[in-house]
């Protein structure tokens, strides 16, 4: 397996977005691309990442291989890559180590690292194709701000979506608060748009702590999509630009 990405910053950002949620994970390499699926230790949330092969500058994978990686170790290695460096990842069939090569844009600096791999027994979950009742698209910076603002007031947030608005409500020890967003009527910048597609109104409760973990993915994408259906896990998606891939989180709802 060998793959090369022009910008190391993409992998660095992906890692930042998942390392607080997941300790070890298998990076599954196949001719289609690089993917990862992992649950947090309490099995409340799930991370699903896909980088399509065509999003790489070079991608070669003769046979599917899983690279078991400790994310704290990978973070240490990726700290040695400049944001604008290209990154080449290599692994052989034995799958006991992975090689990382970082090259500066001017090609005058080349650094190489080898990471020991681990055997990870991971349960893969089958996520059914779902027609969600409500889909909300909003700026990822707005999502991050709401989670961080409401997180200081309480542990859970009630998300209510109607045709007119999406409302985030918190009820905590010191009091309560809410933020309500209305779909944008004037579209100045596409990245500042709030869009709501609704089959039926939804009203659900989620842990703010996890929503805050997911907000670490905000640097990956200008917009985030929240998909909700009653009594079903929330899906939060950050897309890495057209055709490149995505990072999705799933969070089980709080149930009365």
């Amino acid at each position: 397996f060998e793959a090369r990405l022009t910008q190391a910053s993409l992998i660095k950002k992906i890692l930042e977005a998942i390392k607080d949620l997941v300790t070890d994970a298998n990076f599954d390499c196949s001719p289609e691309g690089l993917s990862l699926q992992a649950m947090d230790s309490s099995h409340v949330s799930l991370v699903s990442m896909v980088l399509h092969a065509q999003g790489f500058e070079m991608f070669r994978c003769q046979r599917a291989v899983s690279l078991g990686i400790n994310l704290a170790s990978l973070t240490k290695i990726l700290k040695c890559a400049g944001n604008d460096d290209s990154i080449t990842l290599r692994a052989d069939e034995k799958g006991d180590k992975a090689e990382f090569v970082f090259e500066s844009q001017s090609q005058d600096r080349l650094s190489e690292f080898e990471l020991k791999l681990m055997d990870i027994d991971s349960e893969h979950l089958g996520i059914p194709d779902t027609k969600y009742s409500a889909i909300v698209e909003m700026p990822s910076s707005e999502y991050r701000r709401i989670c961080s603002d409401l997180g200081v007031m309480g542990d859970t947030v009630r998300i209510s979506v109607s045709k007119e608005s999406v409302k985030f409500q918190v009820d905590g020890d010191i009091g309560k608060g809410s933020v309500c967003l209305h779909p944008s009527s004037v579209v100045d910048k596409p990245t500042e748009v709030v869009k709501i597609s609704l089959e039926e109104p939804v009203d659900m409760i989620f842990s703010i702590r996890y929503l805050n973990y997911f907000a670490k993915a905000a640097p990956l994408s200008d917009t985030v999509t929240l998909s909700l259906s009653k009594d079903f896990p929330l899906q939060i998606e950050f897309k890495f630009g057209e055709q490149m891939g995505y990072l999705r989180y799933y969070l089980a709802p709080k149930i009365d």
């Binding site: 799930l46 893969h124 979950l125 996520i127 859970t156 409760i205 896990p233 089980a252 149930i255």
Partner: peptide, 14 residues
């Protein structure tokens, strides 16, 4: 009071 659901209750294990 509400209880936290787990993902296996919603998704099948492959």
């Amino acid at each position: 009071a509400s209880s936290q659901g787990r993902l296996e209750n919603f998704f099948s294990i492959k």
